[in-house]
Design a binder for these strands. Structure first.
Lengths: 344, 344
DNA sequence: TAACATTGTGCAATCGTTTACGCAAAACTT
DNA sequence: AAGTTTTGCGTAAACGATTGCACAATGTTA
């Protein structure tokens, strides 16, 4: 029952040719309304389904978009993917997902496979390892749109969509200050990574703008990990002059901090305020609920998709650098004031 | 710089024909080692990249697999997707993701689009609405593998991979009994849905096997939602003879239960034990940490992928129904005994 | 009514690969 | 050494769609 209706069968059934059928199906203006109707009816009747591969081959471009992410099951990425899919579907595109597992070697293979599959373009959040951009440049050289998101680089002249890490950090720290915290610690990963560098800048700027000193002992480098978060928090709080708040560039180390603090009878937010970054779903389920900087992952997805469509439809060929506003989601862990309004 | 090297250019450069090049590239046995080497070298030299669309068109089948899920950003689904991608990549396949948003109408469109894209087959977790299977039957009729996962049906004769909900529930309830709980309530969604029906059966069987009565007042129908979970827990605990444990067929209503209980000074697990289902990541971050039945989503993904490959390679054409063993992840919320060993 | 523009359709080439078929040369048979 | 098989490669036709060109039929204009 391998139902393989082609335009040729339709043509034969109608005693005409494939070209006429093709034109009717594609709303070509050079076709009479009568034949169009006839063709459509017969196509329906025979259960015709177009072969997009054949059409793509002929046209020279497909309706497939390649997406490369480090891991498809990380909530941030899966959420961006959802946003992209939702948006590009409107224009008739489908998405192919590849995972780099944070290895540049996989990334290179993925790009190759996607180009072989004749995708219309590629949307990518680069692996942590990636510091050579030949494979990406190659996409552009082939005349296909390449859009970077979340993890970007200046080394390659193309559109990108990232959140404003500086502002996210700035707002978080400002919020802590407004809630009466004065000695604010900062947790982050390696500051060579651009997102951490930016978040650190935001932290610094906020302290500066509120006339608070930048204390070296309060700047902690820690992996994005619950256990590590607990460890550094223990060390930090046992200092002679411990902080009264922690702004963490990761939700996981923030969680570690909250865990250690509550297990050691500190009151969060009473004694110590805590804010994370990422707004992972678990943030809303913790006790106390965790204030966090939301990265607008779904919006990022739809935005990336829109930029992509812009490029592909040729409306805009100039690279665009989109900076998304993060949103500070205020919950219990940071709200000394008017806690009752937020506690939930 | 639209680098379009085809096998014809390679052929021309080598003063031979495309067929020879094609054969060399595909390791056809009817080609001399010498020419193969020459072709490979020249292909490399010219930066040749195969056009898989052309090849698929000719061959009649592609290396693309369609995946349809309700939402790509739900941790369970994104995790399955990750598992599938990881596994099928080994055989040179790529995956196209579609989302049904729980609407059967989208599902039908997605199937159509995937078939048009000439996918090798489709892997799907059906929408909640789906109760007519014509569009899925259509995939099979076209001779392409269709694999169901998580949400299955007997109405269509094809392979599927689901977890053993009965056993998951049975083990969870047994664990509660072994920890000294006797009056165990059961939360679930509509029991017409097969997964809830099965979990209910497991609950019943476990009670029965441990000579515990099946109490009607302890069987609660509740949506998979934190707030709803709180509401029903309040009602439940205010009964004249409240339960001493809750087994919830969803992590979210379990979370609601824990929240209400702790907010109302119940000790979990001291007074009331709680177990959820799904092992959502948040389960490990709650206080107390939540015991839950893990659905082995990533294993489900790799298993689905393996079954798919089996079918596509023609090793097995008989439909297979795979039942995966869930894993009870024991944490603090259910462990009256030896709590200290588990508390994290 | 002649000249011209427009409309609707068919013909045939094309997109980049694969592959059935054929044939000559080489390699085995006996 | 003649017959048979194997090997290596070219020819040409697909796969299913799109599209430039040609041309007849129709419509418009002067």
């Amino acid at each position: 029952m391998k139902n393989k209706t082609t335009i040729h069968e339709i043509a034969k059934a109608l005693n005409t040719t494939a070209s006429t059928v093709s034109r009717a199906l594609n709303n070509n203006p050079r076709i009479s309304e009568k034949t169009r109707k006839k063709v459509l009816k017969k196509a329906e009747e025979l259960g015709y389904e177009p072969n997009t591969m054949a059409s793509s081959l002929r046209r020279g471009h497909s309706k497939l978009i390649g997406i490369i992410v480090p891991y498809a099951d990380r909530i941030f990425f899966s959420s961006v993917i959802r946003g992209i899919e939702e948006e590009v579907k409107k224009s008739g595109y489908n998405v192919i997902i590849c995972q780099s597992y944070e290895k540049v070697s996989n990334e290179i293979e993925d790009v190759k496979a996607l180009l072989s599959a004749q995708v219309a373009g590629i949307i990518i959040s680069m692996s942590r390892e990636t510091d050579n951009y030949k494979h990406l440049q190659n996409v552009i050289n082939k005349g296909k749109p390449l859009i970077l998101f979340d993890r970007s680089t200046e080394e390659i002249n193309t559109s990108s969509v990232v959140i404003d890490d500086f502002r996210g950090a700035y707002n978080a720290v400002t919020h802590l200050v407004k809630n009466g915290y004065r000695k604010i610690a900062f947790y982050s990963g390696n500051k060579k990574v651009s997102i951490f560098k930016e978040r650190f800048r935001g932290y610094q700027a906020a302290l500066h703008d509120h006339n608070l000193p930048l204390v070296k002992e309060y700047q902690i480098e820690v992996a994005s990990d619950v256990e590590k978060g607990k460890e550094v928090t223990k060390k930090l709080m046992n200092q002679s002059d411990p902080p009264d708040a922690i702004f963490s560039a990761s939700d996981f180390s923030a969680l570690g901090a909250v865990k250690w603090l509550t297990e050691n009878k500190y009151d969060v937010p009473g004694n110590v305020g805590v804010i994370g970054f990422g707004n992972d779903p678990f943030a809303q389920y913790l006790t106390p609920t965790l204030t966090s900087v939301d990265q607008k992952s779904k919006v990022m997805g739809t935005t990336v998709a829109k930029v992509f469509i812009e490029h592909i439809e040729g409306k805009n060929t100039e690279p665009r650098k989109v900076l998304l506003n993060p949103e500070l989601v205020i919950r219990a862990s940071s709200s000394k004031i008017s806690l009752e309004k937020i506690a939930g």
